[in-house]
């Protein structure tokens, strides 16, 4: 029982990570892949923040009535990582919009079929 209580946070993070991973490799829709990537990234963040926790510790803001604080270093790293993950998402979405303009779809299998047949006339584009 103690073993489970000591590890279940890590197991939940593995589960979340695998849900995101599944969306990234198995879903054909590109926006779904981005959502999967976000879930995956947040799972990694959860793992880091779990490492930072100290039993009976408080938030690392100094005040005189406590002696035990959580570890501030993983918090700093994850603050940076959250912002970087939003940048990644923004660039990926811009690429998806371009792909949609070019192919008229954002489903992976349809894009591959259009590429093979070589007839890409997107809807709404005057030819």
């Amino acid at each position: 029982m103690e073993f489970i209580a000591g590890k279940y946070n890590y197991w939940i993070y593995v589960a979340l990570m695998m849900i995101g991973f599944y969306a990234m490799i198995a879903k054909g829709n590109l926006i779904k892949k981005i959502i999967g990537m976000n879930v995956f990234q947040t799972a990694v963040f959860l793992f880091y923040i779990s490492i930072a926790k100290v039993r009976e510790g408080t938030a690392p803001i100094l005040w005189d009535r406590t002696v035990l604080y959580d570890n501030p270093v993983p918090h700093v790293l994850i603050l940076t990582a959250i912002v970087v993950s939003v940048s990644t998402t923004a660039v990926a979405l811009a690429l998806i919009i371009l792909i949609y303009r070019e192919f008229g779809t954002m489903e992976e299998d349809e894009i591959l079929r259009i590429q093979k047949n070589g007839s890409a006339v997107p809807p709404g584009k005057p030819e």
Binding site: I31, I34, I35, N38, T42, F45, I49, S50, A52, K53, G57, T58, A59, P60, I61, D70, H75, I78, L79, I82, V83, S85, V86, T89, A90, L93, A94, I96, I97, Y100, T105, M106
Partner: peptide, 30 residues
Amino acid sequence: LNAVDVAFTEASVGAGITTILLIAALSRTR
């Protein structure tokens, strides 16, 4: 988990800006 700075960054940047970006992308696609 006492990571207050990370929590409000996630609430504003992760939940806010990411959602807005995704909806903006969706409005230009399907």
